[in-house]
């Protein structure tokens, strides 16, 4: 009976987690890759995340916003204060109203949020054939199996099977729900030139930008992992002590 129960519990749990995968509909499962941030001691590979930021900035940012990130957040990726200022200053943001009651443009400062490519969602749709490029701040958490999915999607464009119809304006990608995606293949080999000399293959860029996007979605992951390790270690010792005390206290009851 008890073995039966365990089997039932296991089945229940696996069913719960399986639902995440099927929720996205008809699509191929994204292959698992190894990531610097996975596992209980995972941290973000700073070099990859910085390269990923470059890919975002030079490729994705043409259509996709990351509106929950501020330029100052880039300090977490290892950029210096001066570098962050320089990056921010490349963008013009709207501020105001000034003393004349007018809105005005000024260079962004580190405290500003990342400038979005479009003024609003309607403008974004209008410029993209009716499809809305989603904000990417949380995309790595907003898709099941986020990191693997993003990498698979970005590097997964290919010719459709002969019997698979892809309408005009859509593209075949087996990892996307329904396998037809409005986004044209965003990454081409050597689309960016990495300062550190890394070869900018599609696979490499997909890996880097995924690392960047995971960081964008879960910037406190490293704090969480390290605090968790300390907390659990502490709790194990404390619980052990409580158990010893419990044994002592109860010794005279039995």
């Amino acid at each position: 009976m008890r073995k039966f129960m365990f089997a039932a519990v296991a089945a229940f749990l696996s069913g719960t987690f399986a639902l995440a995968a099927q929720a996205a509909g008809e699509q191929d499962p994204a292959p698992s890759r190894s990531w610097s941030f996975s596992g209980p001691f995972g941290t973000y590979d700073r070099a990859a995340a910085q390269r990923g930021f470059q890919v975002y900035k030079e490729v994705c940012a043409a259509c996709h916003s990351v509106k929950y990130l501020a330029y100052r957040n880039l300090r977490d990726l290892g950029f210096s204060e001066a570098e962050v200022k320089a990056i921010a200053a490349q963008y013009e943001v709207t501020d105001g109203p000034n003393d004349d009651g007018e809105m005005f443009q000024r260079p962004a400062v580190p405290a500003d949020r990342f400038k979005s490519p479009f003024a609003n969602d309607k403008a974004a749709r209008a410029a993209n054939g009716g499809a809305l490029p989603p904000d990417l701040s949380l995309i790595a958490k907003a898709r099941p199996n986020g990191a693997n999915y993003l990498h698979a999607l970005l590097s997964g464009y290919r010719e459709p099977p002969a019997d698979f119809a892809v309408p005009e304006g859509l593209h075949y990608n087996p990892y996307f729900a329904g396998k037809r995606i409005a986004m044209a293949p965003p990454l081409n080999a050597d689309a960016v030139t990495y300062a550190d000399g890394t070869q900018a293959s599609v696979d490499q860029m997909a890996h880097d930008v995924t690392t960047f996007l995971m960081w964008a979605a879960e910037p406190k992951l490293e704090d969480r992992h390290s605090l968790g390790f300390k907390v659990i270690l502490f709790l194990i010792v404390l619980t052990g002590l409580f158990y010893a005390v419990k044994r002592k206290v109860w010794a005279d009851v039995h």
Partner: peptide
């Protein structure tokens, strides 16, 4: 030994 245990557990719990 028992008292030591109590103090240790209590101190640990308080710190936590």
């Amino acid at each position: 030994r028992r008292d030591f245990l109590y103090v240790a557990a209590g101190a640990f719990g308080a710190v936590g």
